[in-house]
Amino acid sequence: MNNDIRILCVDDEPNILSTLQRFFRRDNVQLLLADSAEEAMKLLQEKGPVQIILSDYRMPGMNGVEFLQQVHLLWPQTKGILLSGFADLGAVSSAIDDDSIFRYVRKPWDRNELRGVIDEALSLS
């Protein structure tokens, strides 16, 4: 991974964000963090598109699926990965069907699984 890779992490839980920060610590990637979908949109508009977005599902305000769907409309190349402990698969599966969500990863995630998903997303982008 090189410095051109930009990954956006969105979660209302700061501990998750710092964990993800640690997860990518050894990778040479540009990591953006946001604690809500609105904040994330702002970041994307300010700093430009990213290759990968990791988003929580359940957040105050806009939820993860809605957020990723909006992103998909604006930046279709961006791969959205939904990270969620909530098992509302109905909403998620429809989003997966329309390509706005690349993958769904259940919380708590397996590090190797997550790494595999990200590698896959990067190889496609």
Partner: peptide, 18 residues
């Protein structure tokens, strides 16, 4: 509860991994 527990468990597990 699952969601609420899964979140902390998520980061705890990952932190433990770290």
């Amino acid at each position: 509860v699952a969601h609420d527990i899964n979140n902390p468990i998520g980061f705890v597990t990952n932190n433990l991994g770290e």
